[in-house]
């Protein structure tokens, strides 16, 4: 069985831009089919979806957390597999509730999306899951293969360099693979590093209309299958670090010999 945490970068500015070729509704439809495909793979597959909004991150859906009776509210449909319907209904509703309108407040828009917050939450969920499984002790229980897929549309937020790096290290420890699917915006150095360091893949979607095909071919298979059916990986990774005090990405700088923090001329 395998567990997928999906991190959606829901930057309103990027998604409400009418000049983009990929509309948010189309994007959401592709993502939902992809998620259904993940659930279709195996009966036991689980799913958690996190949304990164400007300044906050929210868990939008979790198939593990069945405490909420919400899924019972959904009327069964004889033409659709019930878990798919539950997921789709819940996710679209939650996103509609949470998605801020682009013009509501200008200051909220200036905040960078809390991608790292969402990433940390996803990792926490993984840890909680692991401890829950271990609770009945002795019996050797199979830990689900876990991976995180980040769908990113916004550029690097240099300010979050340190927390992101820390998240990457804990992902490495937890053996969680981080995949990155970049849809809009410039390549982000830090997410490239995240994918590289955890053994995931960083893929830039060039043709937006075939987003679903990208998702299906590159991000659907659990890590154990990837050793047999290869997934493209990036060969050029930007390893530059950020200056600890100015939060700028630097080509060359100084490293403190005591705390190993890196910095530009400010040292």
């Amino acid at each position: 069985m395998s567990h997928l945490s999906l991190l959606l970068d829901l930057q309103p500015a990027a998604w409400h831009d009418p000049t983009q070729s990929l509309q948010f509704s189309t994007f959401l439809a592709h993502i939902l089919v992809f998620l259904n495909a993940h659930l279709a793979q195996k009966h036991e597959n689980s799913l958690a979806i996190f949304g990164a909004f400007p300044g906050k991150s929210i868990m939008l859906y979790s198939s593990i957390d069945q405490t909420k009776p919400a899924d019972r509210r959904v009327q069964p449909d004889p033409n659709w597999y019930q878990p798919f319907k539950t997921l789709d209904a819940a996710l679209t509703e939650r996103i509609r509730e949470e998605m801020p309108q682009p013009s509501t407040s200008s200051e909220a828009e200036e905040l960078p999306v809390a991608l790292v917050g969402a990433l940390a939450k996803a990792l926490c969920c993984k840890i909680i899951q692991a401890t829950k499984v271990e609770a009945p002790s002795d019996t050797p229980v199979v830990m689900p293969e876990s991976r995180i897929l980040i769908v990113s549309v916004s550029p690097d937020a240099a300010a979050s360099y340190i927390p992101l790096m820390n998240s990457i290290f804990s992902a490495q420890k937890l053996k969680v693979v981080i995949d990155v699917c970049k849809i809009y915006g410039p390549d982000t150095t830090f997410l490239q590093q995240a994918a590289y360091l955890t053994g995931g893949s960083y893929i830039r979607v060039e043709k937006h209309e075939s987003l679903l095909q990208y998702l299906m071919m590159c991000f659907l298979q659990p890590p154990s299958v990837r050793s047999l059916l290869a997934v493209p990986t990036t060969d050029r990774v930007d390893f530059r670090a950020a200056c600890f005090c100015h939060k700028d990405i630097i080509d060359a700088g100084y490293v403190c010999s005591v705390c190993l923090s890196s910095g530009s001329d400010c040292f």
Binding site: N36, D77, P78, N79, W80, Q82
Partner: peptide
Amino acid sequence: MALTGGGDLNSFGVP
């Protein structure tokens, strides 16, 4: 159709 829903085959059982 199974992944996207739809159709009228009632193949997932009529409640």
